[in-house]
């Protein structure tokens, strides 16, 4: 089960509103390689892991990804809080505001709604781990895109942190996958 700590994993204090940045940040909130997709992917794959190593790794990384969802949400919240109608219209965020106000809602940067086809759990530990590795790489690349788009250092710092976390997660999945392949867990 999960316990909640009323703190962020990494501090976020954004001083300036930037609705265009908020719009593209949605990609990591509800998009194909978002932290939300990662959480659900790992939580659903952990049941067929052949030993406690795999189950623990997936549970623990999923827990950290939940903290990352919170960080992305915080970034979007702080980038949009107190926005005026003119600012919303100018940034193209009005389409988001129409359906959700300034609430958060999982869509990607283009407004396409989150759905469970973004992740898979196929019942084979090696296949699942290869998907996890690919997902972490894609998330890293998307964080690089977001860093390229950002101009505010208060936004770039947490993005750098999150990008580095994806690299570490990738490495752990890779190490586990190599071990499972050596032990022959990939074949049923």
């Amino acid at each position: 089960m999960w316990a909640y700590e009323k703190r962020l994993e990494y501090p976020i204090n954004i001083k300036r509103r930037d609705l265009k940045m908020a719009k593209v940040m949605l990609e990591q909130y509800g998009g194909g390689q978002s932290e939300l997709a990662a959480t659900l992917r790992y939580l659903n794959q952990r049941y067929t892991m052949p030993d406690e190593k795999g189950k623990n790794l997936l549970s623990d990384i999923a827990t950290e990804e939940m903290a990352h969802i919170e960080m992305i949400a915080t970034i979007i919240y702080q980038l949009t809080k107190g926005a005026t109608i003119e600012e919303l219209k100018e940034a193209g965020f009005d389409t988001n505001y129409a359906g959700h106000g300034l609430d958060l809602f999982p869509t990607d940067a283009n407004g396409y709604i989150f759905n469970a086809t973004y992740f898979a759990a196929v019942g084979d530990p090696v296949a699942n781990l290869y998907e996890d590795m690919a997902a972490e790489q894609k998330a890293r690349a998307i964080y690089e895109n977001l860093i390229n788009l950002a101009t505010d250092p208060d936004v770039i710092a947490p993005l750098q942190f999150l990008r580095q976390r994806e690299i570490v997660h990738f490495t752990r999945f890779k190490e586990l996958c190599e071990e499972y392949e050596k032990k022959g867990y990939g074949k049923k």
């Binding site: 703190r7 994993e9 790794l57 950290e64 570490v168 752990r172 190490e175 586990l176 071990e179």
Partner: peptide, 14 residues
């Protein structure tokens, strides 16, 4: 907390 978390992930595999 972050240091502990990163070690946690390491120890899951090692």
């Amino acid at each position: 907390g972050f240091a502990a978390k990163d070690i946690n992930l390491y120890l899951d595999v090692h």
